[in-house]
Amino acid sequence: MKLPPLRTLPVFEAVARLNSFSRAADELNISQSAVSHQIKALETYLGEALFLRNGRYLTLTDEGRSYQDSIGSALLQIERASEALLGEETARIRLAVFSSFAVRWVIPRLPALKRAHSQVDLALEMTGESPQLSDRVADCFITIHPESSAFTYDLLYRERLFPICSRQFWQRVCESLGLNSAAAEDGPDGEAMTLTPEQIAGFPLLSTHSIYGRESGDWQAWFQVADQGIPAHARVQHFSHMLMALEAARFHQGIALTNDYMLSQEDDEAAFVRLPCHTLITGDRFYFAHKTSRRNEPGIRLLRRWVMDQAIASGLRSASEG
């Protein structure tokens, strides 16, 4: 078995992850010159430059980035295997998840995770909706783009958007339209009554830019389901993020488009009303992802099963969905 100098590998991993020789030295409790010596020895063995040095700035070369992906994964597997044999009780797992899903769905469920699996030490890493799938970022991910063939993806949720408002604002809507609020609320899927797009457009619309990446894109798509455009008289308030639009709706400022996981907390039913009108299927699918080569690690297996169970229990997906 032909291996590189093994003592150089943890040093390389630390420098690549921290993007700094000095911070790697502090973490490893060795001198900066020792770090530099180990990196030089590894580059000499491989015959490749792993870092580009420009004054104080340090970046990985393409070869270094590829090597980091492989080495990082291998070192993590060695660590996990050693912990298992040593009988370590704590499974340290990093989950990369975008902000709205983290704040509205994952974080409220962390106490339940701790009660059910006290050995799991879960660290949340905030990312965009399309995080780079790499061991140097996290161990597991919530993503809407299942692009890497090196990863396994479990479907959590098929997104749909529907209009909501606060209960106080709902009373205003009903009074303005001459509706019985209780009767209207009984039928969110149209059993009792359905509000038309024209009626919805008569009230302030709270729009989230990030959903479609353009101004009023969410409401444009919602009206298109009914073969209409946003009426010229509609008043649209713009927000960059769905979390902001949801809070504006909570404080009675208008009607927002939101999805199921944004309304997954116990007090949401008391705070919001889902308006009786049509739903928009966005086409986005949310997945729990982890590197296939790490599928048998106990911590990852446990977190995957817990997340999938929670998705089913909260109604994001059915038990039969694939």
Score class of each variant (00 low, 15 high):
226 A>C: 11
16 A>F: 11
98 F>L: 00
158 R>C: 00
2 K>T: 14
308 M>I: 15
144 I>C: 01
125 E>H: 13
24 A>V: 00
154 D>Q: 09
186 D>T: 06
251 F>H: 15
125 E>R: 15
14 A>P: 03
136 R>M: 12
222 W>N: 01
166 S>M: 09
130 S>H: 12
191 E>N: 10
310 Q>V: 03
46 L>G: 06
141 F>V: 06
102 A>F: 06
127 T>G: 07
62 D>C: 05
308 M>D: 03
206 L>A: 08
96 A>L: 06
292 T>Y: 02
253 Q>N: 12
118 S>L: 04
171 Q>H: 12
46 L>Q: 08
167 R>L: 09
247 E>N: 13
119 Q>M: 05
169 F>H: 04
75 L>D: 09
5 P>A: 09
186 D>Q: 15
311 A>M: 01
165 C>T: 14
17 R>G: 06
75 L>R: 08
131 P>M: 07
115 R>H: 03
321 E>C: 04
39 I>C: 07
178 G>H: 09
277 C>L: 10
93 I>M: 06
31 S>V: 00
146 P>D: 06
77 Q>R: 15
254 G>F: 08
154 D>E: 13
141 F>E: 05
142 I>V: 15
117 H>L: 14
163 P>N: 06
20 S>H: 02
175 E>Y: 05
158 R>E: 00
134 S>R: 10
114 K>H: 14
5 P>G: 07
47 G>L: 10
180 N>W: 01
181 S>Y: 05
289 A>L: 02
130 S>W: 07
210 S>H: 12
322 G>P: 00
315 G>Y: 00
278 H>Q: 11
264 S>Y: 02
120 V>W: 04
230 I>H: 03
207 S>F: 00
19 N>W: 07
187 G>D: 13
296 N>W: 13
222 W>S: 05
17 R>N: 08
179 L>P: 01
201 A>F: 02
2 K>H: 12
80 R>P: 00
158 R>S: 03
274 R>Q: 04
135 D>C: 11
137 V>E: 10
83 E>D: 14
73 S>C: 11
65 R>D: 14
192 A>N: 06
306 W>P: 09
266 E>V: 14
260 D>M: 02
125 E>D: 07
289 A>K: 04
247 E>Y: 13
256 A>Y: 01
322 G>E: 15
13 E>R: 15
281 I>T: 08
27 E>T: 14
289 A>R: 03
160 R>L: 00
27 E>L: 15
140 C>K: 05
233 H>K: 13
161 L>A: 04
179 L>C: 01
265 Q>C: 09
9 L>I: 12
96 A>I: 05
16 A>E: 08
94 R>L: 04
117 H>R: 14
316 L>M: 03
203 F>I: 10
